[in-house]
């Protein structure tokens, strides 16, 4: 599995530099705008989307080079092939958190401490998008290929963003405080449930 993640990191660095830079820049920008008490919701969502696209993009590259077929001839079990993509998604999420933290730190030095810690909701939406979109789209991509998975990616993305923005803007007293925690935790739970489904569907593809 380590080898597959290493391969994905090489491909990310070799073929997805622009996507990586965009996602990082938007995450940093969101953190900076938050620190200035400006509305950064769109930037969070965009950064989340671009990051969430990375595992799908890597699968597309695998299909293009036919590595997706070749990997079955390598000494890795189908479960590990699937888990490698989920592991990479988590690495991407960590990268987004690191960029956000770097943005907050830089804003703290350049602008001064934020008057209100308003970034929580937006950041949690970003994190949720990064986990939730692959959680829903990866099983389909493992079964039917990236082309069909990508269609679902867009479809799920629209629903998730709309739902997340609704939740984030909800003014109910208790819920508003819980959203920054509930959203990513829910996304993480779905992400964890999605992995065994992907494994099952990936195995079915070999039949």
């Amino acid at each position: 599995m380590k080898g597959l993640i290493r391969k994905d990191l090489y491909v990310l660095w070799g073929a997805c530099k622009l996507q990586l830079a965009m996602a990082a820049l938007l995450a940093i920008l969101s953190a900076v705008l938050d620190a200035k008490d400006e509305n950064a919701f769109m930037f969070y969502v965009m950064s989340g989307f671009i990051t969430a696209m990375l595992p799908m993009t890597l699968m597309a590259y695998d299909e293009q080079s036919r590595f997706d077929g070749f990997v079955r001839a390598l000494p890795v079990s189908p479960s590990r092939v699937v888990l490698a993509k989920y592991g990479l998604t988590l690495l991407c999420a960590c990268g987004a958190i690191a960029c956000y933290a770097a943005g907050r730190w830089a804003a703290g030095i350049l602008i001064g401490p934020a008057s209100s810690p308003s970034g929580g909701a937006g950041f949690s939406v970003m994190l949720s998008v990064i986990l939730l979109v692959p959680a829903l789209a990866l099983p389909f991509s493992f079964r039917f290929g990236v082309e069909k998975g990508r269609f679902l990616f867009v479809l799920f993305g629209i629903f998730i963003s709309a739902g997340a923005s609704l939740l984030a803007s909800f003014n109910g007293a208790g819920l508003r405080e819980l959203v920054p925690w509930l959203l990513p935790l829910g996304a993480l739970a779905l992400f964890a449930l999605s992995a065994p489904l992907s494994m099952r569907l990936y195995r079915a593809r070999a039949r």
């Binding site: 380590k2 080898g3 597959l4 290493r6 391969k7 090489y10 491909v11 070799g14 073929a15 590259y61 695998d62 293009q64 080079s65 036919r66 590595f67 077929g69 070749f70 001839a73 390598l74 000494p75 890795v76």
Partner: peptide, 27 residues
């Protein structure tokens, strides 16, 4: 088992040195 399919199925952006890194972790 060493496998060679009808096409070499390695990612286009990878080099031989990088392939060594990947295979080292797999085998």
């Amino acid at each position: 088992v060493g496998v060679v399919l009808d096409e070499a199925c390695f990612p286009a952006c990878m080099s031989a040195a990088q392939l060594n890194g990947v295979m080292r972790d797999l085998y």
